[in-house]
Amino acid sequence: MEPVIEVQGLTHVYIDAENTKVTALDNIDLQIMPGEFVAVIGANGSGKSTLARHLNALLLPSEGHVKIKGMDTMEEDNLWDIRQTVGMVFQNPDNQIVAAIVEEDVAFGPENIGVLPEEIRTRVDDALKAVDMTAYRTHAPHLLSGGQKQRIAIAGTLALGSECIVLDEPTAMLDPKGRKEILSTMLRLNKEKKITVVYITHFMVEAMLADRVVVMSEGKIRFQGTPREVFSRVEELERLGLEAPLAAKVAFELRKSGMKLPKEIITNEELAAAFG
């Protein structure tokens, strides 16, 4: 199988106003296969958003290559297909609303790429259904809650036909219920529609539900693996300004005090089972 996303030796150097260079990504290699759900975590300034912007050619490599289904982002002819393959959802839902009615907002993307009107109708209906927002079809998006706005933004990328969706801290400004809604929406789309998901977050409990967690620090990928592999490395995470889930931290402390516990405990249920 061909990877959806293939990042080879990617380096990104920003040049700021005072002409100083900031190396935000430093020789990164990463492969993401169709249908994977990959979480990306890392301290502030570690390069997560910069990486995300490379995945639909909003930024171009200073060195190395980014290929989307084999299409190199450096080649201008590929831009159209790349943007259709990979959809982006940003942190602030307010910045993503373009129309005064939910349906029109979702239809905006497909209209822009010249999809036929009948086809748009079905795509919009399907997309709203997928994010469970059909009932809000004719509402005004700016009057919806943050979690609802974020789901409209996701519907917009689905209507575009995106096979892969990149979300950059989509839940940072949401309440606990809104956070759960967005995450479960993405997990469901990933399972049912086989959409590939790249999910950037500072919430470790969200990353725990991914297939794979990528840990970034200072423009590099420090380590990666299943949530279990990554989140049982309690001390290493702390050194990177990150944090393991509470159950993993408690298990770590209990082991230090001499209690025998299975390795790689990361959930409350797993820790509780050890006491059963």
């Binding site: 309440d175 606990p176 219920k177 809104g178 409990v205 889930p245 509470l246 159950a247 408690v250 409350n268 249920e269 820790l271 509780a272 089972a273 006491f275 059963g276």
Partner: peptide, 19 residues
């Protein structure tokens, strides 16, 4: 739409197992 902190959930999970 709110929640309780993780430590309450972990404590509850442990209590469920009889601790």
């Amino acid at each position: 739409g709110m929640d309780v902190p993780e430590v309450y959930k972990l404590a509850d999970a442990l209590r469920d197992k009889g601790l």
